[in-house]
Amino acid sequence: MKRKEILNRLIGEVTNFLLEDNPLRLVVSLHQEDDGAHLSFFDDRKRTEEELESIRTSLNPKHTRPELAGYYGMMAGHDTSWKARLNLIGWQIKGASVKNNDSGLQIDFWLGSDAFNPDHFTIEKED
């Protein structure tokens, strides 16, 4: 059940982050394939461009950090009493997109094995 535990941790940390703004609506959507998964989070709180950039930076680290992902990444989703730490997630996923949609914030991210091709999912291409 390794996959279940990882998804649990990641969902826990992101929802911890989203709940910090006390949303009235929060939706988590999961789409799984054999070699990967796509997670989407929606709430009803729009963020400033600065806040969006900060979330993007945390979820898309410049370098891969296997030494941090495999060890400290285990803390993700466990501590919900204090501020969420999205960088714990950034090291464990393939990539993330962050934007404001019509109603609030939308975070999408993709995770999976080396064989996993995010293009098969609804990943957005940069213009």
Binding site: P66, E67, L68, G70, Y71
Partner: peptide, 10 residues
């Protein structure tokens, strides 16, 4: 099934 890098700090 991890690399030694994943556990390098340990």
């Amino acid at each position: 099934r991890k690399t030694l890098g994943s556990y390098s700090l340990i």
